[in-house]
Amino acid sequence: MLTPRQALLLGKVVDGFSATGQPVGSKRLAEDPEVKAGPSTVRNELAVLEERGLLAHPHTSAGRVPTDAGYRYYVDELLPAATPAHELRLELVRREVVEAMRVTTETLSQVTNLLAIVSAPPIGTTTIRHIEVLALQPQVLMVVVITSTGGVSKKLFTFDRPVDPGLADWAGSYLNEKLVGTGLGARMLHSRLADPALAASERAFVEELSPAFTELAETAEDTLYVDGAHRLLSEYRFQDVSQLNALMEMLERRVSLLGVLTAALDSRDAYVRIGRENSEPALRSLSLVAANYGLPQRNLGTVSVIGPTRMDYARAIRSVRDAAFQLSRFMEELY
């Protein structure tokens, strides 16, 4: 543990470096009215913090910058006592899930000036909300499936002979009765569709249309909503071009990014990974702040921001928590 003065100085260095991107020197700290110590004492305390691995000299400058360990101490020990005034407000009422995800991502990026990422609920939590069986031509039908997350899938079926319009209408009513509220697991859908009480012609027709439902889970992919790459690039200068390229490549490879965010699903509080704490090489010079959202007994996804290690952690953590809380309330009302 640090002494109160050392903790104060570490916090001042983190805040100063976050605001300017420039090393913070002892003279500047000694001039701060909250620091009740002269320049020599401040220099000694900074030297101690450097010996403990919390601060570093970036070059020959007399100023210090936080290390990953310094940021970690700041987040774990100094931020809990802070009370950030900023609050994030989302307009999610009467929106479909897809639109709610977009609004959350865009708003979070605007508030933090960081790269914002929201993972959509996994396909296993999705249920069927409505089905339409539409006759496009005498021999061509289209089955439209609308899911609880606002997704819409369409599948065309071509038959050897014209389809009886009455049979198509019956199929629409029957499928809604049997499948609305059912999850997208193929086994469950097959069991719902297999009704021995149906006439042979009806059973054969339903079997013909079944791929519109049973293939949904196979073709669906976990979705990420991303916003703010341009804000991140304009707000912070990336000294290492390879660092920027690695981040852009990771955004293109959604699978690896999903793996990173999955780790945050089990966290009860804000999930913060700083610099080399990140397992993904593309993030080892960046920081990730995430929080999960969902139902009382089940987490559905994550809300997160990615940015330089000198990000404003107080604002990032508060904004991510606010967004996750409001998205959870939206999901509770929806489900």
Rank of each mutant, 00 (worst) to 15 (best):
E177A: 12
T127Q: 13
L224G: 03
L258W: 08
E221T: 01
R161D: 01
L167Q: 06
R298K: 06
S173L: 08
E235M: 04
L300F: 05
R298W: 15
Q110K: 14
V111A: 09
R43P: 12
V118M: 15
L136F: 02
L265N: 01
E249M: 02
R102N: 03
Y71P: 09
A69Q: 04
R192P: 05
A323C: 09
R276E: 12
A81C: 13
L114I: 11
L258A: 12
L141R: 11
R310H: 12
L300N: 11
E333M: 08
L156A: 08
T67H: 06
M250E: 08
R298G: 14
S40I: 12
M188V: 11
A19P: 13
P162H: 04
A263W: 10
Y73E: 10
R52Y: 06
M101A: 05
L265A: 09
A197Y: 08
S267I: 03
E235C: 01
L193D: 02
I146G: 00
I317Q: 10
P211D: 09
A324Q: 14
G172I: 03
A263K: 15
A120F: 08
V143C: 02
T158M: 14
S153N: 15
E332I: 04
Y174S: 01
A194D: 15
V118R: 05
T223P: 04
A212M: 10
R72W: 13
H57Q: 00
G275N: 08
M331R: 11
Q243I: 06
D32I: 12
R5V: 03
R276H: 04
R129Y: 07
A314Y: 04
R329I: 04
P162V: 13
F157K: 09
G228I: 15
L286V: 11
T41L: 08
D160P: 00
R5N: 14
F157Q: 02
V133G: 03
E252G: 09
V163H: 00
Y73K: 03
N245Q: 15
E215T: 02
G53T: 00
P138N: 13
A217I: 06
E91P: 04
N299P: 13
L9V: 11
H59K: 10
G16F: 03
T219K: 14
E215R: 09
A270G: 11
V303A: 13
D68G: 15
F205C: 03
F157D: 07
L49T: 04
A186W: 06
G53Y: 01
R203T: 09
R187L: 14
A212F: 00
T125L: 01
E51R: 12
L90T: 15
T3H: 03
D32F: 04
